[in-house]
Amino acid sequence: MTNERSNEAWLADLQAEGPRREAAVQDLLIWLERRLFFYLRERSDLRGLSEDELAQMAADFAQESVLIILEKLAQFKGHSKFTTWAAKIAVHQALGELRRARWRDVSLEALTAEGQLDPTVLLSDPLTPEEKSLRREVVNLVVDVMNTELTKRQRQALIARLVQGVPIEVLAEQMHTNPNALYKLLHDARKRLKTRLLERGISPEDVLATFG
């Protein structure tokens, strides 16, 4: 029944009053809840949870998502099916919460050692003497460029993202900014790092080729 609604019908029903709106909200809730449940059930990091716990988690995420979707109705431009747009918001909400839960209580300063990159983090054994020599040269250049050409904030963000894999919204919170501004800061840092490495004769593509 849910998929029989056109985009226009979804908007009209969700913006209506009384039982018509309630029915549409309920349909959307069930539609999202089912899909989130089956998605969550496939996630390897949630395998320890029972079906009932996963169903409750899906229900909670769907409930929170429907509230957000109702607030954002005016932003729906009709470039996709309404349910696809709604699923995008629900997935963003659900995965964002899972990421934040996983990275709760992590301190940025502890992760990035005050923003300086230690070369040993990029070097590992066992290597042949030739590999070690080439890799050490590359690593020393990368670390030198990172430590001298990037701002402390750029360095912190890049290390947290690339070395530690901190999710962007978690890192943005830690750095008292928003994900969009953080993406720009990281993009600027990557461009600067790439340019400086190229100026010193290091092409990331060529170096990658030596790693096989």
Partner: peptide
């Protein structure tokens, strides 16, 4: 540690002047 270096180099190799944000 090698994976970190490879990840960094791959990211730099893919870096473009103009990119879309999240």
């Amino acid at each position: 540690s090698i994976a970190v270096l490879v990840r960094l180099l791959r990211t730099l190799a893919m870096t473009e002047e103009r990119e879309l944000s999240c």
